[in-house]
Amino acid sequence: MMGILEVASALLLIIGAVFFLAGTIGLLRFPDVYTRLHALAKADNLGLGFTVLGLLLQAPGVAAGMKLILVWLLALAASATLSYLIARRALARGIEPWKSEEDER
């Protein structure tokens, strides 16, 4: 008989893994740098966020939980900064954002 905390933790961990899978598929399938950046941000923020939330329910104490949240906040800050840097640099180098067929018309 699993407690409700364990079920919730497992559910959150699985949601996080699904977001990581989506990020990986996006990185493999999307057409250009900007869209891949978008996929990477999903994996960074939501995937890691749900994983941290799921593990938070298993954490033994307050200090361990605080450290987990710190990991997530650091990853958030790094992801936001890097997305900005890379997107600005790509635009400055003259890489055209990808357009769909409908946008062309």
Binding site: R36, A43, D44, A59, S79, L82
Partner: peptide
């Protein structure tokens, strides 16, 4: 392009963090 390689390496970093966290709680190694 180089940026694609870097983005994949960054994804490696994030997923590596997640795997380390999962291993930490699975093995009890804080």
């Amino acid at each position: 392009t180089p940026a694609d390689r870097l983005l994949a390496a960054l994804l490696f970093g994030t997923v590596g963090v997640a795997i380390l966290l999962l291993l930490a709680f699975a093995g009890g190694e804080a």
